[in-house]
Each structure stands twice: as C-alpha cells, then as structure tokens.
Write a protein that binds this DNA or RNA. Structure first.
Lengths: 241, 241
DNA sequence: GCATTCCAGCTTGCATGGAAGATAGCGCTC
DNA sequence: GAGCGCTATCTTCCATGCAAGCTGGAATGC
C-alpha cells in the first residue's frame, strides 16, 4: 500500500484566506477523478465502481465516495445508489444551457471590469490584450492548441478581474463540464480571426471605461461563438459527448 | 438537484422513471442541516462538531460528514480539518457578489423567456402577473411575509420559465446563501410599490416578446433593489449576518 | 423452447474503531 | 509573574465490517 504522495495546492478554492492547506485523501481523489474525467480517461457513460477507483488510487472506498459526492455536486458524475459512479455525458441541450450561463455571467463580469477605477481598467485591458496577442501569434502559426489555451486564458482573466469569487466558481464549474466539448470542437471552429477581433473590442471598451459597450461586446462575442458551435454539433449528429 | 437525465448507455429501456427516490440518511442530514442554517437554528459563526449533530439527528457521524461536504460545496458551511463545521456568515461583500450573480443570471433568463414562442410567453407572463397580484394584495394588507413569499415566487417562476436547469441551480444556491439577509432586511425595505411596478413591466415586456426590453427591465429591477439594500446594511453596520 | 423463480455475487449505505492532528489547561522552570 | 513544554482530550480522517439492494444467470416447472 503506497502512501505519502506529495500533492500540489488545491485548485478552485476561492476563499484564499488561509495560505496553507494540508492535503487530504479526499482532495486527492477529487483532483484525480476530475482530471481523469477532463482528459476522458473516464469516458462519458463509463460506469465505475468506487471499489475499483479506490484500488487504482491506492486508498479505501471512503475518500473516493466522498469525492464522488463533490463531483456529483459539480455536475460531472452521477452516483447511482448501489450501482456505481456514472460519468455524465453532455447533450447538445446541456451545451445550450452552459452557453446561456456563460453569456450571462461573463457579460456581467465584463461590465463590472469596465466600471473599475481607471488603474484597474488599464491593468485588466493590458492583461487581456496580452492574451489576445498570444492568440494572434498562435493563429499565424496555425497552432490550434496554443490558440485554445490563450483563448481560455483571456476568458479566465476577464472573469478574474471582476473580483467576484462566486462568478469565478460558476464559470469554473461549467467550464469543467464543457471541457471535453471544447477540446473536440476546437478543430472544427472557423471564426478564429473573428474571435481575435472581438477580444480586442472587449479590451478596448474596458480601457475606455464604457460598461454598456463592454457588456454588449462580451455578449455578442459569446453569442456568435454559440451560434457557430451549436449547428456544428448538430450537423455532426453528436448526441452526447 | 433536478438534472436532465442523460440517456443510459444501455438500451434496456426498462429503467423505472419514478421520481420517487427513497430517502437516504445523507439526504436527511443535508436537508436538516440546510433547514437549520436557513432558520438560524445554527447561527453563523457557530462551530458544531459532527458528533454532536449526528447525535441530535439520531444517526452516525458518516452521513453527517458527507452532508457537510455537500453544504460546503454549496457555500453554506466550511469544514475545518479537525476542528469542526463552521456555519458561514455573510459579509456585505458577499451580498454584493450575490447580487451581481443574480443580476447576470436573472437578466439572461428573462431575456430567454421573452424570446419564447408566443404561447410560452403568454403562459409565463400570466404566471408572473398572478404572483405580482398576490404581492399587491399583501401590500394592501401590509402583510410583509406574504409580500416576501409572493416576491420570491415571482422570481422563481421567472427563472423556471427560462427552462435552464443550471441557471435554476445557481439561483437556488445563492438564494440559500442570502436567505437570512433577505429575512432580516424584509422589514427595512421601502420600495415595495416600486417592485410591484417593475414586476408588471417585466411581465409586459415578456408578453410583447421584446427580449431587449425584458433584459433591461429585469436588470434595472435588481439593480435598484441592490442599491436600496446595500446602504441599508452599511448604515446598520452589519459586518456579518 | 419459454417463462419464472431464486440465489450468488456484485454494488453502495452506514456504523464504528483506531490513528493523528489541534487545542487548552496545567505544572514546571526561571 | 511570565514563559515554556507536556499531556489530556477533543476533533476529524480514513479503513473496514456488516447489512441490504440490485442484477444476471442458472435452475426449475410447464
């Protein structure tokens, strides 16, 4: 029985008041299962038993069970009483729901950033422009993974500058849920240059301190992305992913 | 809680569709603790031990522990390693965060309802107007609790008609968090008639199928409520509640 | 051959005990 | 009296045992 794994800091906690957090087996199990779900080691529809996962992670059933409860709360799995842990699939309707949540939260977040005092706005716009520049460079190289990473960083930074822990957490949760869909559709997307232009527009609206224009730009950006993605999913007949 | 059930990977089709789920001790503990937090039986700042709660609920420590994990995920408590369960208090800054989440989500939900086909819009508007009428009646009687109940029902119906389970869940979560603050400030609120008028305006915009106007009306309603509530909390010097 | 019953083996739900960490209070030293 | 260290005790964390529910398939009756 191998124990004593060194463990990195836990991600996702928004109440950063205590600097040091001790690792627990439950946290390990949560992080490991979440990572496995993200990279599709646990494919959607796969039904695992807690015993089996516990064995694989080298711990007993208890921490796995408790981690599964957290994952269920996050909407990533479903714990079926006396049957096992079911990795949830994502239907197109789920994608629609997720986009509406993003449109709502990110729009408001962008508006809040644009309403910051001048120094905060400038710092935020600079951050955002840096990420957009990375996207341009990746686009020039036709480096899709880098483009996706910079795009994700842009949106993460946008939320972060709004300084609202609850919003951060909500976005994190739905991003986890839709991570696989994003990876899958990255290769199919068309409007990469449109995204870049829209990002510039958002940053510009923030810099000039116009909350209304910022809200509008952020919304249009996400609406366009959604209207580009949903037909794509439909045309490929992807019922679940 | 209510999640769209993804189609099972097996084609058995004999799966019982009964929504009746037998109660488990974990669910009991979760519901009991959540109720106790809502009605301030567990006051904020109170630090309980799992053992003690288990004793009070007549079960062992395990289900209490697992319910505590869910409550922590909901942001209602904090599990302090080897110290106990801390009932979280709500700072004014939390209220601000919560309002921004509500402004974002409810605004988008209202917009979605206004974009429904005509029959759906009419049904939604009728529902909403019924709740508003109940608010008017309660207002005439100076029945504050009834007014608060009808107001909550209006907003719940608004979200529900948007048919987005994730939005419902998000709103439910933040409402749980701010329930105590709402109860506390219900007696202090002034703009009851303004709320009623704004509710009428939202329902009207939905009925006429104008998403832009609906979004705007819903946002202004919540913004006004926030700008009324926050100074109230500040003036009473409520650091936590 | 077909339907039905029953049972063995799987699963989780929950209780409980041991271990380790945190804390408060006491006694000791200076 | 002040500071320090030790220990008793309280707490959660995790492993494990037992019980109960579900499922699939074998055995049985027709």
């Amino acid at each position: 029985m191998v124990r004593a794994r060194p463990k990195g800091p836990r991600e996702g906690g928004q109440q950063g008041e205590d600097g040091e957090r001790r690792t627990s087996l439950v946290d390990d199990a949560y992080a490991a299962m979440r990572a496995n779900i993200r990279d599709a080691t646990f494919a959607p529809g796969y039904q695992a038993s807690e015993q089996e996962i516990a064995l694989r992670l080298g711990m007993s059933r208890t921490p796995v069970h408790e981690a599964a409860i957290r994952l269920q709360e996050d909407g990533l799995v479903r714990v079926l009483p006396r049957k096992g842990i079911l990795i949830l699939a994502l239907a197109p309707d789920d994608v629609r729901e997720i986009y509406d949540v993003i449109i709502a939260i990110e729009g408001r977040a962008a508006e809040l950033v644009a309403a910051l005092p001048e120094a905060g706005r400038a710092a935020a716009a600079e951050d955002l422009d840096a990420h957009t520049t990375r996207m341009e460079e990746a686009y020039a190289r036709q480096d899709l993974p880098a483009w996706g990473g910079a795009d994700a960083a842009f949106h993460a930074a946008l939320i972060e500058h709004a300084r609202n822990g609850r919003m951060s957490r909500i976005v994190q949760t739905v991003n986890d849920q839709s991570h696989r869909a994003r990876m899958l559709t990255l290769n199919l997307r068309r409007g990469l240059d449109a995204s870049i232009a829209e990002h510039r527009e958002i940053a510009h609206a923030i810099r000039s301190g116009d909350p209304g224009a910022t809200l509008d730009a952020a919304r249009r950006h996400r609406l366009r992305a959604r209207d580009e993605l949903l037909p794509l999913l439909a045309s490929y007949g992807l019922k679940h992913l």
